[in-house]
Amino acid sequence: MALQDDLTAVQRSVDELLRAVGKLEQQVGDGSRGGPAAIDVRRVRADADHLRESVALLRASAHDPAVAPQKRLDLVTIPDTPYDSSLWTDSDDEGLGASDRHAP
Rank of each mutant, 00 (worst) to 15 (best):
D93E: 08
S61C: 00
L96T: 12
A9Y: 10
R12T: 11
Q26S: 13
P79C: 13
A46Q: 09
Y83K: 03
D100L: 05
P104K: 08
V55A: 10
D92A: 12
D49N: 07
Q70Y: 04
A20Q: 14
A2T: 15
V14E: 06
A98Y: 05
W88T: 12
P104L: 02
L57D: 15
H50E: 10
G35Y: 11
L58W: 00
G22A: 07
R45P: 00
P65A: 11
L17S: 13
A38D: 07
R42P: 00
A62P: 12
P65S: 12
A56G: 15
Q11C: 02
A2D: 15
Y83S: 13
L73C: 00
L57V: 11
A66V: 03
V14R: 09
A48N: 11
H50F: 07
S61L: 05
V76R: 14
L7P: 13
D90T: 08
P79D: 15
P65W: 03
R43S: 06
L24Y: 03
A56K: 00
A60S: 08
D84T: 06
D64K: 01
M1C: 09
E25D: 14
L24K: 10
V14Q: 10
A2F: 12
D74A: 14
D5R: 11
A37K: 12
I39L: 10
V10F: 07
T8W: 00
D90F: 04
K23I: 06
A62I: 04
Y83W: 03
R43V: 08
V28N: 00
R43W: 08
R59T: 11
A98R: 12
L7A: 13
E53D: 05
R52F: 03
S61F: 03
L75M: 03
S99K: 00
S86G: 06
D30V: 04
G95K: 01
P104C: 01
S61P: 02
L51P: 09
I78S: 15
A103E: 07
L96A: 11
A103K: 03
R52K: 13
A60Q: 12
A62S: 10
L3H: 09
S99G: 04
E53L: 11
S61T: 06
A98P: 02
H102T: 07
A103Q: 10
R12G: 04
P65I: 05
H50A: 13
T89S: 15
R12L: 06
H102G: 05
L96I: 13
L24D: 08
R45A: 06
G31E: 02
S91V: 00
D90N: 15
D80Y: 02
V55L: 14
T8H: 02
Q27E: 10
D47V: 01
T77C: 04
S86R: 06
D64E: 10
S61M: 01
L18S: 12
D74E: 03
S32V: 00
R52M: 02
M1I: 07
G22Q: 09
S54V: 09
R12D: 09
A20N: 07
R59M: 09
A56L: 08
S32H: 03
R42Y: 02
P79F: 08
V28E: 06
L3G: 14
G31V: 03
D64Q: 02
W88M: 12
A62T: 11
L24P: 11
D40E: 15
V41Q: 11
E16Y: 01
V55S: 15
D47H: 04
G31P: 08
D64I: 00
E16I: 05
H102V: 04
